[in-house]
Design a protein around this nucleic acid. Structure first.
Length: 232
DNA sequence: CCATTAATTATCG
DNA sequence: CGATAATTAATGG
């Protein structure tokens, strides 16, 4: 399955291009292709480490990743979970050239590395590219604003509901789906303890909102879940 | 409303 | 089989 889209051996015909790269011309893509690296990661491996320099853009073309804010002593915070095709950049690219979060593989990953040198070049020469890049930064900022509001103002039921709905709508788009997260990670995603995660999920199951068996989640009462997420 | 603690059980390697 | 993850109930801020 990894062959799909790579058989042309060029970025020009690759079907796993992120939205930002779709704005590039053929010659720009050819240029990029000649210096890119392909990498595979196993589940749990660190793809980018918080604090380390940003030498390349990382385009995740297969697999799921989590973006983790690491704190000293306190539990980690999962900022977001992303699926392909996702371009890992980071707020530090034009600031201090460091990662401000770690990127960790939730599943086996296929990724392409593109030297940040190209980012700087394309932004100067290709306005549509610049616009798309800025939009992707803006989208992730808006997402984070929503998450701050959620974590600060919603109760546990609301936060879990939002997490489940996010995974359903934005990641899997299927109804029974396999949770790629442990209870601990679900806790880090929702700002609660793993014990509370267990308890709330059990309550949802008892009330017939979800059927959660091990890592399989089946949403039974979507209206109810959306309602709890909204008013939480 | 929710974290913490602790005890118990299930699952993984 | 030992380690790690998950569940459950009780307690208190």
């Amino acid at each position: 399955m990894f062959n799909d889209g790579f058989e042309e051996h060029s970025c020009v015909h690759c079907v796993k291009k992120c939205d930002v790269f779709k704005a590039l011309t053929e010659s720009e893509l050819e240029l990029m292709y000649r210096s890119r690296y392909e990498t595979f990661y196993r589940q749990g491996e660190v793809i980018a480490k918080q604090g380390s320099p940003i030498s390349h853009l990382i385009s995740i073309s297969e697999g799921l990743v989590k973006l983790v804010l690491e704190t000293s002593g306190e539990p980690d915070i999962i900022l977001t979970i992303e699926r392909p095709v996702f371009l890992v950049t980071g707020p530090g690219v034009f600031v201090d050239n460091r990662y401000h979060f770690s990127v960790i593989a939730l599943t086996p990953i296929h990724a392409c590395y593109i030297d940040v040198h190209y980012l700087h070049g394309f932004i100067e020469t290709n306005p549509e590219f610049a616009k798309r890049f800025y939009r992707s930064v803006g989208e992730s900022t808006i997402n984070l604003y929503n998450r701050i509001r959620s974590l600060n103002q919603k109760n546990m039921g609301g936060r879990i509901s939002e997490a489940i709905l996010y995974l359903h709508h934005r990641i899997f788009e299927s109804n029974p789906f396999e949770l790629p997260l442990t209870r601990q990670e679900l806790a880090e995603f929702t700002g609660m303890t793993k014990e509370s995660v267990s308890r709330i999920l059990k309550e949802f199951k008892e009330e017939g909102i979800l059927d959660v068996d091990d890592h399989t989640v089946h949403i039974l009462n979507m209206d109810r879940l959306e309602n709890i997420a909204r008013k939480g």
